[in-house]
Nucleic acid binder design. Structure first.
Ligand code: SF4
Ligand code: SF4
Lengths: 160, 160
DNA sequence: ATGATCTCGGATATCTATTGTCCGAGTTCT
DNA sequence: AGAACTCGGACAATAGATATCCGAGATCAT
């Protein structure tokens, strides 16, 4: 039960991107977050493949959110980076060993797999309720309303 | 978001152990499940360290559940094998970079970390509601009430 | 139109954590 | 007392994640 560490950077990047309608290069995001530029770029590429962010190449290019921040859930970001495969993978132990059950009677997933799937559904549901816009608002509130304006200012002043 | 694969074997082992009040060796469990004996033993050791199962050494020794199966939750088993550290680890990105926030204002975890913690709490809560006894009952129901008696019979017939 | 420059994109090494295995310490029964 | 069987932790092999690089391609200025 360990999540990929890059999810954190990706979420930070999405929150930052929600504050700018103009494209932001990956290197700029890395500088702002104090993270390794090359690896940050990798996370952005994954987000691009998932269709969460759009990319513009060439000079004055960069990444932009493809949808309003209120329409992007944290679950989508997590799945884009960490993969959408379920955490629990059934190896069909019940079919092995001396008491193996023939495959014909294993149409439905077993009780253990069902319980695990239900737990993951609860987890996914909790993350689906959280949007990038909501995260930005909460972070702003935590900083007494100065965090997001500061980000917007920084993005504007360091342009070119 | 990938769970350790050994969790599956550990849960199977716990369900099987709930059907026998006498100690069952790790090798016997591995034979029943058709899994690698050495690695199965490793999972049992982790369960023993967590206090979920008790071990008896020497001849006719093995593992036994320390509590009634109805009092053991799936969450405990998962945590024993997969570790109890949270899936999301905050690297405090907000303290890095040009807009780094001083540590004095970072007493509370940030909004992103809070959202992740809430999701994991939902996941944990779902797993805490599931007991080993409940899993055994469900597996039994799926097999028309033949699975658990078969296990008990197999454990008895192959003794010594 | 052309060149230079800046961007993303995927292919490529390195490194940690999981998986898988082994043999010795210790206990029980004969 | 002896023998056999058990668990327990220490030891390699493997897969996944981490971190990085340079080339393809587009944009802007000239
Ligand atoms: S899904 Fe159930 S029966 Fe199948 S391998 Fe996992 S625990 Fe065993
Ligand atoms: S907890 Fe929040 S502020 Fe801290 S590193 Fe994670 S995402 Fe950033």
């Amino acid at each position: 039960m360990k999540m990929s560490n890059g999810v954190e950077w990706a979420l930070h990047s999405c929150v930052t991107l929600s504050q700018s309608r103009e494209p932001v290069p990956a290197a700029r995001l890395a500088e702002l977050h104090g993270t390794a530029p090359a690896y940050t770029a990798k996370q952005l590429q994954a987000l691009s493949r998932a269709g969460i962010v759009g990319s513009t190449m060439g000079q004055s290019g960069g990444y932009v959110l493809t949808r309003p921040a209120s329409e992007i859930s944290a679950l989508e970001v997590v799945r884009a980076i960490d993969g959408d495969e379920p955490a629990y993978r059934c190896t069909e132990i019940r079919q092995r060993g001396p008491l193996g059950i023939p495959a014909e009677r294993c149409a439905r997933p077993c009780a253990i797999a069902r319980a695990m799937a239900a737990a993951q559904d609860a987890w996914s549901h909790a993350l689906a309720q959280v949007s990038i816009a909501g995260l930005a608002a909460d972070i702003d509130a935590d900083s007494d309303g100065t965090a997001m304006p500061d980000v917007r200012r920084w993005l504007a002043t360091t342009r070119n």
